[in-house]
Computed example of a mutant assay.
Amino acid sequence: MARMVLLASYLSINANVLSTFANKIELTTEVEEKDITTYGSLGWKEVLGGLRSASLGLGFKQDFTAAQLDSIMWPLFGTVVPFEVRADQAAVGTNNPKYTGSVLIKSWNPLTGSVGDEASVSVSYPTSGVVARATS
């Protein structure tokens, strides 16, 4: 089994490559659990998968410089935009699949922290529609 250390992950939001600002990328997918247990289940719970959902958690090092992170993300607030994430910035392939979809930019926290803290941003966005995995 190959092991990997995340050193150069890829993040794009609304066609803006934001890898140079990101220090955390977490794509989580899940499916609703629907209970279909009947008396015929003989006392054992039976389930099926229902609606699927996902979220994209991100950590950034903030940058207020013109045309940098804050000026890219602020106009996206309240909109649904495309995203792409990969474990590595290398070309997409069987060893480096890409995950794509759309996310609702439901929050933006431009300023958080205390005296002496680095300027960082932590957000989590729900996906809207299908999240796809591709190797080409």
Rank of each mutant, 00 (worst) to 15 (best):
M1W: 14
R3N: 12
L6P: 05
A8S: 12
A8N: 15
S9L: 07
L11P: 01
L11W: 02
S12I: 10
I13F: 00
S19Y: 00
F21H: 01
N23W: 00
I25C: 00
E26G: 12
T29Y: 12
T29I: 04
E30F: 04
E32Y: 02
E32H: 03
E33K: 15
K34A: 08
K34M: 07
I36P: 07
I36M: 06
I36V: 15
Y39C: 11
Y39I: 06
S41T: 07
S41A: 07
W44P: 03
W44H: 12
W44M: 14
W44S: 09
E46K: 10
L48H: 13
G49V: 05
L51I: 15
R52K: 13
S53A: 15
S55R: 14
S55A: 10
L56W: 09
L56M: 08
G57S: 12
Q62S: 07
A66D: 07
A67P: 03
Q68I: 01
D70V: 02
D70G: 09
S71Y: 01
S71T: 10
M73P: 03
M73G: 01
W74K: 09
P75F: 02
P75L: 03
L76S: 10
F77V: 06
G78Y: 05
T79Y: 12
T79E: 14
V80A: 15
V81T: 10
P82I: 15
V85W: 02
R86I: 05
A87E: 12
A87T: 13
A87R: 15
D88N: 10
A90M: 11
A91M: 04
G93H: 08
T94D: 15
N95Q: 14
N96R: 05
N96P: 08
K98F: 09
G101F: 11
G101R: 06
V103E: 10
V103N: 03
V103L: 07
L104S: 05
K106Q: 08
W108Y: 05
N109R: 03
G113V: 01
G113F: 01
S114W: 03
V115K: 11
V115I: 08
V115Y: 05
G116L: 03
A119T: 04
S120H: 01
V121C: 01
V123P: 00
V123K: 00
V123D: 00
P126M: 04
P126H: 09
G129V: 06
G129W: 09
V131G: 02
A132M: 06
A132L: 09
T135L: 08
